[in-house]
Write a protein that binds this DNA or RNA. Structure first.
Lengths: 206, 206
DNA sequence: GACAAAACAGTACACCGTACTGTGTTGTTG
DNA sequence: CAACAACACAGTACGGTGTACTGTTTTGTC
C-alpha cells in the first residue's frame, strides 16, 4: 500500500510520517510504536496500519523521506569538489541524532531478506554503489585516487565507513566527521601521488 | 547477576549461552526469545531470567563469548604483521553470519545510554581504541602510515569501517573483506610514502 | 443517486519481556 | 549433623507490542 488514492488520505499519510519523525526525534527509536504515532497524528492505531500496512513500512518511508543521499547530490559527482561536498552533506547529520538512530536500527533489523525494508536498503546500496563507482573512476582518471584499487571496492569502503561512523556516533557524539573525511582524503590522494611517483621513477623507492 | 556461585548453576549458564548462540545461528536473531532459548536449553523461561536477569544481558554475554577482538590479538600489535593479522582475524567472521547479526543488532539496539549492553559496547570501543591508537602510532613511527593524521582518528576509521562492513556483509555476502583490507593497506602505506617523499624533496610536487 | 473503494474505529489475539510468588536443592556454618 | 541462607529453578500474572479481523462512515465516480 504505497500511495493513497484520495486527497484526504494522502494528507493524513504525511501527517503520520511527520508524527513518526517527530516522535523519534523527541523520544528516540524505542518510543516509536504504532500507538504513540497514532496518538501523535490524531487517529487510531488501525488508521495508521491502514495507510502503511506494517510498522517497518512506516519506518522505511519515514527514513526515505529524510534520506540525505538522494536529497542533494549536486557536486557529489564532480571529482574536484567531491570531498568538499561530502563533508558538507555530512555535517547536517550530526544534529539529527534521531535520524541516525532510525537509519541504523532499521538497517540492522532489515538485514534478513523477506522483511519489508530489506529491498529498500538493497536498492539504496545498489544506487549509492553505482554513483560511488562513477565518482571513484573519475577520481582515478584525474589522478587523485590510486588506480590499483577497484572502484567498486572503494565505493563499498566509503559507504561502510559512513555506516559504521553513524553507529559509532551514537555512542560517542564528540567524534568529528569532518576530520574523518579529511583523513580519508589524505589517504586517497596521498596513495594516488605515491602510485604516480612509483610509475614515473620506479627506482625512487627504497 | 554476572556469575553464578554454585557449580550446577555455572554449568546451566553455559548451556543457556550455547543454546542462544545455536538458536541465533540456525534461525537468526529474530528467533531468539527467552522462551525459545529456554526450550533449547531444557528449562523454563524463568530459569533463563534467573541466570541473566534480562534478555539484553543474555545476548551481551553470548556476544562477548565469541568476541573475536579479545580472542586472539597475537601479532595485532606488531607493525610488520598488522595488516596480515587483521586479514586473518576477519576471514573467520564471514562464515558465522549469525554472529555478525547478533553483533550488529545488539550494537544498534544499545545505542541509547542506560541499556544493559550500552556500557559493554562503550568499554569495548574504548579498549579497541587504546589498542588501535597504539598500533597506528607504531605504524606511523615505522613510516608505514602518514603522520599527518591523528592516530585516534585512524583507530575510529578502522573500527567504523569494520562495523559498517559487517552490516553491509549481511546484505551482500559476496563482499570480500580481505580485498577491503588490501585496499586499506594500499591507501595507508601509499599515503605514508607520499608524505615521506614530500618531506624529503618538497619541490617534487607539482 | 447508486455504488464501490477508501478511511477510519473497535475488538481480539498471539507473542513478547519481565515482575512476583512459591518450592525444592545446594553449600556453608555452628 | 542440624540449621539456615542463598541459589536454582517452576508457575503465574501483567502490561505492552504488532497485526488480523470485523464493522461503519466518508469520499469520489459513473
Amino acid at each position: 500500500m504505497p500511495k493513497s488514492k484520495y486527497a484526504k488520505g494522502a494528507v493524513k499519510r504525511e501527517e503520520i510520517l511527520d508524527a513518526t519523525l517527530k516522535m523519534i526525534a523527541q523520544h528516540g527509536y524505542n518510543a516509536v510504536t504504532i500507538r504513540t504515532v497514532a496518538e501523535q497524528a490524531g487517529l487510531s492505531k488501525t488508521g495508521v496500519v491502514h495507510h502503511f500496512a506494517s510498522k517497518q513500512e512506516l519506518l522505511t518511508e519515514a527514513l526515505a523521506r529524510r534520506d540525505e543521499w538522494g536529497a542533494d547530490e549536486t557536486g557529489l559527482d564532480e571529482p574536484a569538489t567531491f570531498f568538499d561536498r561530502l563533508r558538507e552533506s555530512l555535517v547536517g547529520d550530526v544534529a539529527a541524532r534521531g535520524l541516525i538512530e532510525l537509519y541504523v536500527r532499521l538497517l540492522a533489523e532489515s538485514a534478513q531478506p523477506g522483511t519489508a525494508a530489506h529491498d529498500f536498503f538493497t536498492l539504496r546500496y545498489k544506487g549509492a554503489d553505482e554513483r560511488g563507482v562513477a565518482i571513484w573512476r573519475q577520481l582515478q582518471d584525474a589522478g587523485r585516487c590510486p588506480q590499483g584499487i577497484d572502484a567498486h571496492l572503494l565505493s563499498v569502503i566509503l559507504m561502510s565507513l559512513l555506516d559504521g561512523l553513524q553507529m559509532r556516533l551514537l555512542y560517542d557524539p564528540s567524534i568529528d566527521i569532518t576530520s574523518v573525511i579529511d583523513a580519508l582524503q589524505i589517504l586517497v590522494e596521498g596513495a594516488a601521488e605515491a602510485e604516480f611517483v612509483r610509475d614515473v621513477s620506479p627506482a625512487s623507492r627504497a
